[in-house]
Amino acid sequence: MSKAFFNGIYALAALLVLALLAFKVFQPIQVLPRMRLAPAYNFTDQDNQPLTSETQRGRFTLYSFTYTHCPPPCYNSNETIREIQSRLDEVELNGIAVSFVTISIDPERDTPDVLKTYGESFGADFAQWKFATTTNRELLKTVVGAGFETYYEDKGGGNFALDPGFVLVDGWGVIRSEYRYVTEVSDADRILRHLGVLAEEAHNSTGSAKLAYEAAHLFLCYAP
């Protein structure tokens, strides 16, 4: 083997390392992690219609958690959702639909009628924003507690402990981001930006570009 050949190999190794470093540092493509599968469920919405995890397939869904008897000042997640909903046209979604699902952790009092009145009280658009729960308490705990990893506890007397937040799920039913309301500022800007990142990946990650997106996942090029 000639010296020139080995020089070539060294040059190649250096080029590869530089290319990988550049990819990691400059992050030409940003993605959201594919954290885990969202839980499957079969709930009832504010119109007494079934709302299932399957109906959300193919669209991005932002989940939030609440109970209508939450004493004021309650978590302001509804305001955040309203802001996101009103600003969705700022995001290039490439035709992918976005839904909002607010799950009540108090199925005893939050019947479909109560949920409907609750949504109407702040002008929720039910075509895009559903309020749902299930009287199957075990399943509710599995879905909210274990699946969405959102802590809540029935303290008795109509009181609940709840660690509220948002969970963003993609069209494949994979959790892509979580926003813990009490531990970090989960502003609408960030969630809107993340919707754009998801839509861009869903639209562009085909053919040879899929390799670049897989590399972005591999090198943890996550959108802040």
């Binding site: 599968l37 969202a38 839980p39 499957a40 469920y41 079969n42 299932t52 995890s53 399957e54 199957n136 075990e138 399943l139 599995t142 879905v143 274990a146 699946g147 039913g173």
Partner: peptide, 10 residues
């Protein structure tokens, strides 16, 4: 119910 839900199976 638990197994199916947590594996994303409706």
């Amino acid at each position: 119910d638990e197994a199916a839900s947590l594996y994303g199976i409706f």
